[in-house]
Amino acid sequence: MIVSPAVIALMLGSAAVGLLALYASAWGVRILRHWDLRSGSESQLQLEKRTYLVSTLMAWAFAFQVGSLFLFIFTAEDLHRLFVGAMCAAGTLNVNEFGYPTILLKVGNALLAGIWLIVNYTDNRASDYPLIRKKYAFLLVITPLLLAEAVLQGAYFAGLKANVITSCCGSLFGAEAQGPVSSLVGLPAGPMRAALIASLSITFASGLLFRSGRVRAGGLFSVSSLAAFFISIAALVSYISPYIYELPTHHCPFCILQREYSYIGYFFYASLLGGAIPGAAVGVLLPFRGIGCLQGVLPPVLRRLTFASLFLYFLFSLLVVYSISFSALIVEMD
């Protein structure tokens, strides 16, 4: 167990998010069971008031979730000095088997909580809560994941012991490494670049089509924006990061977060997360466009979401182009 202030802060943050979500879910269950908009009964009025509480709780939970994701990476970066062989967060996370699952769950939960807030926002704009049951059922799915994240994170920190020998990015993300994480590295640069360009182009094209009124393009846009998220991360590992490190063999997704690389990693990941959340939300909301009250509400919301997603992916693309073109490294593509 390592007890540094940041570890305490993270545990506290996770406990807070878990508590908020648990409390929100308790009301979610009651709303699922007793909701009846037509009734003017006292209990219905009380439930309606509770929806405000749940929205507020989840908004804060999301804010803390995103904050704790970055603080977690920051902490993993900082703790690397405690472990033999760890040069950055990649090594710290590898110290025990809970490290990588925790961070994956953190990213997933941030995505889900963001989507929930967007669904909630949309639902509140329609005059008869058309998505109320769906969104509270969705909430009941997210809450256990948030709790699981808190538990995994606790297990991870509890299992940390200084001086443990771990392997770091050099071997984890090295060319000859084995295992699921490192298989990303093995992806050849040429095809990876093609996949990245393809997924981003499809996202941009379908997004622009969707915004100009082709409803059909919306589904494609949503799927491709989510795919672009994962492909971009894979591309960061396999193809983009060597340009940033100016070393053809270094593929770490975490070292780019360090000061030496002017914290550029935070911009990469923030723009990706910001692009993926609204993009995925478009896909979640699209099937409901036929529902009575949403007909008027949904189109402007979808347009704005699409714009936000496209804008952030555009920023991401600029960052990628910038990193590659200003790099001293020149890679032969075959």
Binding site: L37, R38, N124, Y129
Partner: peptide, 8 residues
């Protein structure tokens, strides 16, 4: 207006 949510 009787069945409208509070915000409306």
């Amino acid at each position: 207006v009787t069945s409208l949510p509070d915000r409306f």
